[in-house]
Every structure is written in C-alpha cells, then in structure tokens.
C-alpha cells in the first residue's frame, strides 16, 4: 500500500504545530517550539496540530474558534497547561491523524459574514462594481494616503489575538493602505506573561524570528549563540524610539549582549502609525512584553 507507506514516512517528520498562546505560557511555549522535533508554523493553513497553551480568556474564545477552523483537515487540537510531556503527546496526535484518525469538525457555523446569494444583477450579492456585499463582504473604499495624499483603498481589520507576528493576546484594530499602517488602536491588551518572558534571549529570539532568522532564534532559546550576521543592520535606525533615547536596534543589541531592557513603551496606537506592517511588528516586538502590556493598559485607561 503506497498510501500506508507514505503516511508512515510522513508520520516520522516533525509535527506541524500552530500555537495559540494564552496567559502565562509564552516562555514555556517558545521553549517547546524551539525543539527540533516540532515544526513551528506561521499560519494555521500550514499546520495540523493547534496547540492551545493555557486557559484562553473568554473574550478571545471566538477568535480561537476561528483559528481552529482555519486548520486544514485532518486536524487536531491539543490543550496544554504547561506541564507533562507535550512533545510526546503532540507526536502521538500527529501519528494518529496520519494513521486515519478522525479530524475535528468546524466549531463555527458554515455561514458567510453577510448573506449575498441571489442578490444583485448577477446573483453576486452587490450592485454594480463596488456596491452591496459581493460574495459576502463589502469592497474596500478609498481614503487619503499618508505619504503623498493619493486617494487609495483602505483595509480595516482586527488583527490578533493569535497573530504569530504580534504578542499573544494583543488585538490591533488597524487600517492599512497597502502595507502602510494608517491608523492603529489596541482593541485588547496582550495577555499577562511571567517575568521570564522579558529575558534577554527570549526577547532577542522574537525579533530574530520576525527578521526571518528562525534557526538563530531557536538556537538562542536553546542556550546557544546566534550565527546570523547583519541582524542589527536589518532593523532601520530610529525605529520605535523610547523616552530614554534608545531604538529597536539598540534594544536588540542589548538583548544579544545578555542585558535586560527596562524601558517605557509609548502608546502603541501612536507608535505604529506611518510604519510599514513589518516595521510595525518589529516595533512591537522590540519592547519587553511587560512594558508593552503596561503601555496598552495605560492607553485603554486613558
């Protein structure tokens, strides 16, 4: 049986895992996924196992269901409380899936965001080119560009709380024009994490991963030294300046040198406007999780 042989071969590879990290378990999850026996996925589309670390608070429950439903079949989810042998449990789940085990059904109902079938001239759900809700969603409309005032389309979305490029729990309500952040506001602050999450190697690893140096990030988390050269030069100077005169590059340099960074993070809404999306993710990751959480809570209280 060719399929049986292929499944056995596939089951020997590291299981592809997408992590939805809850409060308190960021450092433990990062250490778990830095192991070579698990494959960390940047998108649920790539993964077969959804790792749910910790207890996800209720406001984020619907978001977790959405992420769960975006995993392709066959899929399984694994609730982890931070203890036990998670690696072995995930491996067993993966082998079970490839051995023909049952895939989890969708948690959300199979309904489009807006009803559209049969409406409009061609049954596409809209009027003309841009009106109505073609295929269930309105079309993007124009607004003035920050850079040169050209009138271009705006894309407004809530991003997070399980976006892998943002701190876990942080939900940004952002308007983008192409890749440029036009407005940004914190819809929900990041989850609380233990002091361990502010450790220099953990913070540096997060930035290195965003720069595409996943191997170096894993090496740092396992207690090694990064090998990649030029990571510092890849971060623009003056990005995410703090009140003490440092910027993202200076903080990464300090973290790579093994120093703790204690800074006050500015209001994330003001910090991100005018940056490109990737710069914005670097700017957020260049603050220790505790500083970012304090800043978002202060912004919410204000």
């Amino acid at each position: 049986m060719a399929i049986g042989w292929l499944s056995r071969l596939a089951a020997a590879t590291p299981p592809p895992v997408f992590a939805a990290v809850g409060p308190g378990l960021l450092p433990a999850t990062e250490r778990l996924l830095a192991r070579p026996t698990l494959r960390r996925c940047g998108s649920p589309r790539e993964a077969a196992i959804l790792l749910v670390a910790g207890t996800i608070p209720e406001p984020a429950g619907a978001a977790l269901d959405r992420v769960h439903d975006q995993l392709p079949h066959p899929r399984a989810s694994f609730d982890w409380d931070g203890g036990g042998d998670a690696e072995a449990a995930i491996g067993a789940l993966w082998r079970g899936l490839l051995g023909g085990g049952a895939s989890e059904p969708d948690r959300l109902p199979d309904e489009p965001p807006n009803s559209w079938r049969g409406e409009g001239d061609h049954g596409q759900g809209g009027e003309g080119m841009m009106g109505g809700v073609p295929y269930g969603r309105p079309m993007a409309m124009t607004g003035d560009d920050l850079r040169d005032g050209l009138s271009l389309d705006l894309y407004t979305a809530r991003i997070g709380p399980f976006a892998p490029m943002l701190p876990p729990g942080l939900q940004l309500s952002a308007t983008l024009q192409g890749d440029l952040v036009v407005t940004a506001a914190v819809a929900r602050p990041p989850f609380e994490q233990p002091a361990e999450a502010d450790a220099p190697e953990a913070c540096a690893a997060r930035l290195l991963r965003l720069l595409g140096l996943g191997g170096d990030a894993d090496r740092l988390l396992r207690g090694g030294r990064p090998r990649g050269l030029g990571a510092l030069a890849a971060i623009p100077t003056g990005l995410a300046a703090d009140a003490q005169g440092g910027d993202a590059r200076a903080r990464l340099r300090a973290w790579l040198g093994g120093e703790m960074v204690d800074v006050v993070c500015p209001d994330p809404g003001d910090l991100l406007v005018g940056l490109e999306w990737h710069e914005a993710t670097l700017a957020l990751a260049s603050f220790p999780p505790s500083a970012l959480r304090r800043a978002t809570q202060a912004a919410e209280a204000a």
Partner: peptide, 24 residues
Amino acid sequence: GTAPQALPFLGGGTPDTHAWQRFH
C-alpha cells in the same frame, strides 16, 4: 471550503472588507 475556512487569516481577527484593493 466552509465559510470559516474561507476567512483570511488575521490571527483570529476579522476584516471589514475584501482584501482586493487598489494600491499605488
């Protein structure tokens, strides 16, 4: 695919509009 699977991946968030847009 089902409707939840057709949603763009925003880390659990939801978009207001289609992502098909005119850019410079």
